[in-house]
Design a protein around this nucleic acid. Structure first.
Lengths: 351, 351
DNA sequence: CTGAAAGCGCTAACAT
DNA sequence: ATGTTAGCGCTTTCAG
């Protein structure tokens, strides 16, 4: 089972010392040649490169990390459940992060936690397994930011928080997108609008609720007293919420949804009540362009503000690595713009 | 922005040397106490533990790795696209792997590759960033297995291959599940059965095609000459395939699908042709119990063999870590059993 | 039971 | 242009 002629044996592992010996050079020269340091003549550099190639040599990452004081890896910290939910934009963010990390030749350490996120962050900081971390879904008042600043572990937040602490982040332009969507519905004459929003403790949901109110206020209008529903980002809650609100004495003429997941549920509820989307009830949403669940694929196609959550992921990793390598001076924040794409789910409000 | 009274400064980073100095002990004693080596009295062990706790000390993982020669991390190697596809069981496998890795206190390095998987494997082996890797979707004749054996990098395969090389793996019992499903349809009198299978180059699809034929052969029956369709695992191909086959001169009376994704498409095609699932055309499938897409959630509920792909993920990581730590002697293979769950998508064939 | 010392494989400051 | 040396922070013989 083991052995046999096909087996290549490694009598001498390719490391810097052996490689240097083969070349009749010192380890440091070889190291410098490989890293293309200035002051190494082309000839030796090429000779070294060829030998390394032939030997299949790559510097041992653990030794290199220890020597340079960096791991050349970043961590993504998240609750394990996010990988288990069918409806989440997490995987799309992850895809974006992966892309950038690969392009920059860094490692990506997945760091899921069962319940104690702070413990995970402390652990990553003290073990120095990674040079920095990405954290997600910030709360209005998020304690992780102060913690990470205190730990001295570089980090980037996907989203924003209202804390005083400095931090770098990448976020969608939530504030303006909800205001824009609300304005659109107001332009179309809608007044009884229900906003199916995310959970209030998350900053993005709080910001969206504020923008929603602002759009009304700008025109001297008042939203319904219970216009904003703070619920989770799923089809099921979109459905339940819409069904409940459609039974109101004065049912809404339009829904504004925080995600396409919710919008799907809202669509289903409207249909089930025998109403037509667009014709009878207008629907708009913010669209993260999640794989397999975007506004264009609904029927009728859903009018929505859209951003690519994948790009947010790419940007997060790029920013963090730039911060780590000192190419960027923190804190820096990047707010990704959105497009408002008109489709068929909005009509003028009934007179 | 920097500075201010809230800022905790680390005048002396907590490392083994400083911790030892504080305790009036040598680094080696502290190290041993922390690792609970025998021959350290309880009293000092507790004293050390308390001091470490207070200082928030954790051994630097890079230094420890270098010293012990292991990274205490594993890698998951996969094509980047798998994170971008809306229909994939990959995320569920990942969730399972994450669970085990976290439980075992290992790190999980995500190692997506753009096109050259062999290069990625070589790189992981030579840089020694991880102690072992998980590879997925093995081909009938998969070159990665010989490569990894040659590189001496421990690995576990999700699935099997037909190569002679030794390797450890975790797999669903594909062979028997397809045979069981085929037998079920034959019991119900179906003879014109179309198998909507995966792509032929993957071993699981080849094995399933063989099992399908075996079920017929066992009864002295012959499948349709073009009974097996080797197509990708998506709703769209399930739909196209079924639509095409339903237009045959002698259309099938039953479909056997490789995944619930495909089954969904088959359902849609049958409906579109004005036929009833179950009543007019029977459908069965293998169900990996992917988040948001399982057999029970279709309507009518789909009769299927089922296994938890998440459990496969857990098993993969556990096995790899056991192999790395020498708790397990490779090669070892674990074939996960399945349940055949009868639901409403199968009826007796028309006489 | 504890300490001193060597070494994991690399990089970088300091020679020359 | 290259070599020598020290050191990253830990574990682990080997001594005592």
């Amino acid at each position: 089972m083991v052995g046999g002629e096909g087996k290549r044996l490694h009598y001498e592992r390719a490391n810097l010392k052996t490689l240097a010996r083969q070349l009749g050079l010192s380890p440091s020269t070889v190291s410098r040649a490989l890293r293309e340091h200035p002051g190494i003549p082309r000839t030796t550099r090429e000779r070294v490169a060829a030998a390394a190639e032939a030997a299949g040599y790559r510097p041992n990452a653990r030794a290199r990390s220890l020597a340079i004081g960096r791991a050349e890896a970043i961590g993504l910290v998240f609750p394990l459940e996010r990988l288990q939910l069918p409806e989440t934009n997490f995987v799309d963010v992850l895809a974006g992060i992966s892309t950038s990390v690969t392009a920059r030749n860094y490692g990506l350490l997945l760091s899921p936690f069962a319940d104690d996120e702070a413990a995970m962050l402390r652990r990553l900081a003290s073990t120095k397994t990674v040079d920095g971390v990405i954290i997600t879904r910030p709360l209005v008042d998020d304690p992780r930011i102060a913690l990470l600043n205190g730990l001295g572990l570089p980090f980037v937040v996907h989203g924003r928080s209202e804390v005083e602490e400095p931090y770098s982040c990448v976020d969608t332009d939530n504030d303006n997108s909800f205001e824009r969507l609300t304005s659109l519905l107001l332009d179309y004459g809608h007044r009884r609008i229900v906003a199916v929003n995310g959970l209030e403790r998350f900053r993005y949901a709080a910001a969206r609720a504020a923008s929603f109110g602002r759009a009304f206020a700008r025109r001297g209008l008042e939203p319904l007293p219970d216009a904003v529903e703070f619920v989770s980002m799923t089809e099921a809650t979109g459905y339940e919420t819409a069904l409940r609100r459609l039974a109101d004495a004065q049912p809404p003429t339009a829904f504004l949804c925080g995600s396409v997941f919710q919008a799907r549920g809202v669509y289903r509820a409207i249909r089930e009540r025998g109403l037509r989307i667009g014709e009878d009830i207008s629907v708009v949403a913010h669209d993260d362009d999640v794989r397999g669940c975007n506004a264009a694929s609904l029927s009728p196609p859903l009018t929505a503000t859209s951003t690519s959550i994948r790009e947010a992921g790419e940007e997060l990793a790029t920013m963090l690595i730039d911060l780590i390598e000192g190419r960027l001076e923190g804190p820096v924040r990047r707010i990704l713009p959105f497009d408002l794409v008109m489709r068929d789910s909005v009509r003028l409000a009934p007179a």
